[in-house]
Amino acid sequence: MPEMEVTSKAGGAHALDDVIWNALTGKQHGFAVGSERALRFMSPVAPFTAMVDTSPASFDALRELIDEHGPVALATVQAVEPDASFSIVRQASLLQMVWQRDSVPSPALEYLNLDERDVPEMLALTATTQPGPFGPRTIELGDYLGIRKEGKLAAMAGERMKIDGYTEVSAVCVDPAFRGQGLAAGLMKRLIEAICARGETPFLHVLASNPGALAIYRAMGFVERRELHLMVLERAPR
């Protein structure tokens, strides 16, 4: 995106409290579109958005982003109330979890590094399993690993948002035909190992309504850091 003046957020809040804004104004600014008041990832990459504050001017900027680039996903520490010009497509409680172990065992796992040639299969797998937003260019955000079985992509996991010192583990999914074999956990361990080797801390987001995934992540060493309010917004009919 072109260089522009982006307002910094004041205060001593943890960088992960506003991870979307910090990613879009930091390491992943090249994927950002918007203004100094509201930013989002390019729509083929991800729907995530953030505002510099909750003023009417920032909501005006967010509305313009939606008009130009489509629906957005907003994750905030405090619940926000958009005005009637927005339609709320979905609301949910999102738990942010941070990995807190000293070491991770390297699994004996045959995996491959996925690239743009694998995107059609990755899109098909995420459409089936619904691990969260995944677009045709999401793969550009980081490393993605996969496992093939019986000639098809059976499992995948990768890196999404990145800020100084932290990398998000995302798009963790397994084809229903291959579940129960430890494939997702194995891929996650590989990613955790690589992230930690760079001196960074892995983190992830999971819906509070998904106790099965929560239990798996806790067993792997992820600890809940805080709850976020997830809201998917689009323009209200005019």
Score class of each variant (00 low, 15 high):
residue 1 M to G: 15
residue 3 E to L: 13
residue 6 V to M: 04
residue 8 S to R: 12
residue 8 S to N: 00
residue 8 S to G: 05
residue 10 A to M: 11
residue 10 A to E: 14
residue 17 D to W: 08
residue 17 D to M: 11
residue 20 I to S: 07
residue 20 I to M: 07
residue 20 I to K: 01
residue 22 N to G: 06
residue 24 L to G: 02
residue 27 K to L: 13
residue 27 K to W: 06
residue 27 K to N: 10
residue 35 S to F: 05
residue 36 E to L: 00
residue 36 E to D: 15
residue 37 R to S: 10
residue 37 R to T: 04
residue 38 A to S: 10
residue 44 P to Q: 09
residue 45 V to T: 09
residue 45 V to S: 02
residue 48 F to H: 08
residue 51 M to H: 01
residue 51 M to G: 03
residue 53 D to A: 10
residue 54 T to I: 07
residue 55 S to T: 15
residue 58 S to N: 06
residue 61 A to W: 09
residue 66 I to E: 08
residue 68 E to Y: 00
residue 68 E to Q: 14
residue 70 G to D: 09
residue 72 V to Y: 09
residue 74 L to C: 13
residue 74 L to P: 02
residue 75 A to M: 15
residue 78 Q to K: 14
residue 79 A to E: 15
residue 81 E to M: 08
residue 82 P to Q: 05
residue 82 P to F: 06
residue 83 D to G: 11
residue 85 S to D: 14
residue 85 S to C: 12
residue 86 F to S: 03
residue 87 S to E: 15
residue 87 S to L: 15
residue 90 R to Y: 11
residue 92 A to K: 09
residue 93 S to W: 10
residue 95 L to Q: 02
residue 97 M to F: 05
residue 99 W to C: 00
residue 99 W to H: 03
residue 100 Q to A: 13
residue 101 R to H: 11
residue 101 R to I: 02
residue 103 S to W: 10
residue 106 S to C: 11
residue 107 P to S: 05
residue 110 E to D: 15
residue 111 Y to F: 13
residue 112 L to R: 12
residue 113 N to H: 12
residue 113 N to C: 11
residue 115 D to F: 09
residue 116 E to R: 13
residue 116 E to S: 12
residue 116 E to K: 06
residue 118 D to H: 14
residue 118 D to V: 01
residue 119 V to Q: 03
residue 119 V to P: 00
residue 121 E to M: 06
residue 124 A to R: 14
residue 127 A to Q: 12
residue 129 T to H: 02
residue 130 Q to F: 12
residue 130 Q to L: 11
residue 131 P to K: 02
residue 131 P to N: 06
residue 133 P to S: 14
residue 135 G to R: 03
residue 136 P to L: 07
residue 137 R to A: 10
residue 138 T to M: 02
residue 139 I to Y: 05
residue 140 E to A: 14
residue 141 L to A: 09
residue 141 L to H: 03
residue 148 R to Y: 14
residue 149 K to P: 03
residue 149 K to T: 10
residue 150 E to Q: 14
residue 150 E to C: 05
residue 151 G to V: 08
residue 152 K to C: 13
residue 153 L to V: 09
residue 153 L to H: 01
residue 153 L to C: 04
residue 155 A to R: 01
residue 156 M to C: 05
residue 157 A to N: 00
residue 158 G to F: 04
residue 159 E to V: 15
residue 160 R to T: 00
residue 165 G to L: 05
residue 166 Y to N: 01
residue 175 D to F: 02
residue 177 A to E: 14
residue 183 L to Y: 07
residue 187 L to S: 03
residue 193 E to W: 00
residue 193 E to P: 02
residue 195 I to R: 00
residue 197 A to K: 12
residue 199 G to R: 06
residue 199 G to Q: 10
residue 202 P to G: 07
residue 202 P to H: 08
residue 204 L to D: 00
residue 204 L to Q: 01
residue 206 V to R: 00
residue 206 V to A: 01
residue 208 A to H: 09
residue 211 P to V: 06
residue 214 L to H: 04
residue 214 L to F: 05
residue 218 R to G: 14
residue 221 G to D: 00
residue 224 E to G: 01
residue 225 R to W: 10
residue 226 R to L: 12
residue 227 E to W: 12
residue 228 L to V: 08
residue 231 M to E: 08
residue 231 M to G: 01
residue 233 L to R: 02
residue 234 E to N: 13
residue 235 R to C: 11
residue 237 P to K: 13
residue 238 R to C: 09
residue 238 R to M: 08
